[in-house]
């Protein structure tokens, strides 16, 4: 018997605290698999956010820094500038990255900071109990938009991948989803590519991963995957928004 699937080395054995069916766990594993594939576990430093993934440092066999809410790209910048030959990534949710940390992510991207950002978009604040996020969909009910997100009073969701693509600093930006095994494979490819961009020193890389929050969406884990596919993907189209030629070759 040969093993076709097991725990990646860069992922620790600690049990995840996430709710049943929350796709954070899948994305953690994909990041660890990419790090294993590229053989960079001893050269990688992670930066954890504030939000559900605040304890991300417990789940990786990697050196880690825990950042204040939204500040992970600034912290990663500091690490990367001291250790330019290491690989630095942030793992941030939508409240962290697209609300309180919007300045930090935009400027890290604009500087072409050679870091990799794993951006988890599940259209809601998970940790604090299901409040409206900058990425909550029009009409989406949350604990602070109990009548549904009203675009006339609170405006529109932010498409982070597209917005950052308008900048010259980023080298690689894509949006992926983890709602079925096929898309999970694609998400892994994207994450690996984002790390390769950093390894080659090509610039800033970001993968926006559409993710679920069954608990705060009020759906079963299986229903949540379906909701993501039917509601989030139409608003947040999947694809590669920016990719340097050098990396396209590597990934081909």
């Amino acid at each position: 018997m040969e093993q076709v699937f097991g725990r990646p080395k860069a992922l620790s054995e600690k049990r995840l605290h996430y709710c049943p069916g929350c796709t954070h766990g899948i994305i953690h594993r994909l990041v660890a698999e990419a790090i294993d594939d590229l053989g960079i576990q001893d050269k990688t430093i992670g930066v954890a956010p504030v939000g559900c993934a605040v304890l991300a440092y417990d789940y990786f066999n990697l050196d880690f820094q825990q950042a204040a809410h939204g500040r992970a790209p600034a912290v990663a910048t500091g690490i990367k500038r001291v250790l330019p030959d290491r690989f630095v990534f942030t793992y941030q949710g939508d409240g962290d990255l697209a609300s309180i940390g919007m300045a930090e992510i935009v400027h890290a991207a604009a500087r072409g900071e050679k870091i990799t950002v794993i951006f988890i978009n599940n259209a809601i604040y998970g940790m604090t109990g299901g409040q409206m996020a900058p990425t909550s969909l029009p009409g989406q009910k949350t604990t602070t938009s109990p009548y549904g997100r009203d675009i006339n009073t609170v405006g529109y969701p932010i498409r982070v991948a597209e917005m950052l693509t308008t900048l010259d600093g980023p080298a690689y930006i894509s949006r992926v989803s983890v709602h079925d095994p096929k898309h999970i494979n694609k998400a892994k490819e994207a994450i690996r590519k984002a790390f390769e961009v950093q390894i080659q020193g090509l610039g800033f890389s970001l993968v926006e991963v559409l993710s679920t929050c069954p608990t705060n969406w009020g759906l079963s884990p299986r229903e949540a995957l379906k909701w993501l596919e039917e509601n989030m993907i139409p608003y947040y189209p999947l694809g590669v928004f920016k990719s340097p030629e050098e990396v396209s070759k590597v990934g081909a």
Partner: peptide
Amino acid sequence: IQAESEVSAINMVYGAGGAGG
């Protein structure tokens, strides 16, 4: 680095100091 704000600047210090510089 001229950071985008004082908030970012101190967090860059946090990262750089944490990385040993």
